[in-house]
Amino acid sequence: MNAQAAAQTERTGEDGRAADTLRIAYSPCPNDTFVFHAWAHGEVEGAPPLDVSFADIDITNGLAERGELDVLKVSYAVLPWVLEEYALLPCGGALGRGCGPLVLTREADADLSGATVAVPSERSTAYLLFRLWAAAEVPGGVGEIVVMPFNEIMPAVRDGRVDAGLVIHEARFTYQDYGLHKLADMGEHWEATTGLPIPLGAIIAKRSLGRERLHALAEATRASVRQAWQAPERSRDYVLAHAQEMDPAVADQHIGLYVNEFTADLGEAGYAAVRGLLDRAATEGLVPPLAPGALDF
Rank of each mutant, 00 (worst) to 15 (best):
A5V: 07
T9I: 12
G13D: 15
L22H: 09
R23I: 10
A25L: 13
C29F: 14
D32Y: 08
T33V: 11
W39M: 10
A40D: 15
S53M: 07
I59P: 02
L63W: 13
E68A: 14
L72E: 12
K73F: 08
V74G: 10
Y76W: 07
V78H: 03
L89S: 11
R106F: 13
L112R: 13
F130R: 04
R131V: 04
L132G: 02
L132W: 04
G140N: 06
G140T: 08
A164N: 06
A171D: 14
F173N: 00
F173R: 00
Q176N: 00
E188I: 00
T193C: 03
T194P: 03
G195E: 02
P199S: 09
I204V: 15
A205G: 15
R211D: 15
L214Q: 13
E219Y: 09
E219H: 14
V225M: 11
W229G: 14
S235R: 13
S235Q: 14
R236S: 08
L240N: 06
A241G: 12
A243T: 04
H254N: 09
Y258Q: 04
L266Y: 12
G267E: 01
A272H: 02
A273K: 03
L277P: 03
L278M: 03
R280A: 07
R280T: 00
T283A: 10
T283F: 00
E284S: 00
G285F: 00
P288I: 01
A291K: 13
G293R: 13
A294N: 08
L295I: 05
D296H: 12
